[in-house]
Design a protein around this nucleic acid. Structure first.
Lengths: 99, 99
DNA sequence: ACGTTTATTCGATATTAATCGAACAATTTG
DNA sequence: CAAATTGTTCGATTAATATCGAATAAACGT
């Protein structure tokens, strides 16, 4: 369960980030992740099945929106605020700040 | 060729806007539209076929990113800056400002 | 009316993406 | 080692999207 590939900050691609965020479910995930650093992947397992959630976490990770850190059998999810800010200044704030 | 449906500013949906922008071709269109108010739809017809371009303009229009104003047999395309700014402050600038 | 210009719509195809159950993998704990 | 916990991967299905040529439509000029 190791080997989680994360793109480097300087390799983030804007259209990939926007597409990752351009899905209602993932937008919900990201909003939930805001202010909840270290959120586990099953954060809202009553709402959607494990495999679906896993898929969305993966899309977010591969786009560089979140970073996943294994911890036991679980893993903690972090928004890549600094990396996103460095590459696309103001973007994450704009996305999170909007109702 | 009339009846171009545009969503109202207050009805813009963030995930729709992000998905519209989350495509390399459309991002290119929007970047080109920046500073080129009134761009016609065939702005870069050497690059992509008419029908494909029309499709992308439509996605952008229906998401509320651009406004299309008929003018003769053509139509002028405008970024909906104010509307986007009112609904999602900082978003468009962040998208356009990033390399 | 006719042709030209500009753009949309249709139809078909191909690709990508979302969903979710079942099986599997990795880690921790007893 | 066995069981429990947490996620991933597989496989299948369904839905959405991208692409583009050909036909169509609308507005304009002559």
């Amino acid at each position: 369960m190791r080997s989680l590939k994360h793109p480097r900050a300087e390799d983030l691609i804007l259209s990939d980030v926007l597409r990752a965020l351009g899905d209602p479910v993932r937008l919900e995930i990201v909003r939930m992740a805001e202010g909840c650093d270290g959120l586990p992947c099953n954060a809202f397992l009553e709402a959607i099945p494990k495999s679906t959630a896993s898929h969305h976490w993966r899309v977010l990770r591969e786009a560089g929106v979140i970073r996943q850190v294994p911890e036991g059998t679980s893993r903690r999810n972090f928004l890549r605020r600094e990396d996103l800010e460095a590459r696309f200044p103001g973007l994450l704030d704009a996305v999170l700040g909007s109702g």
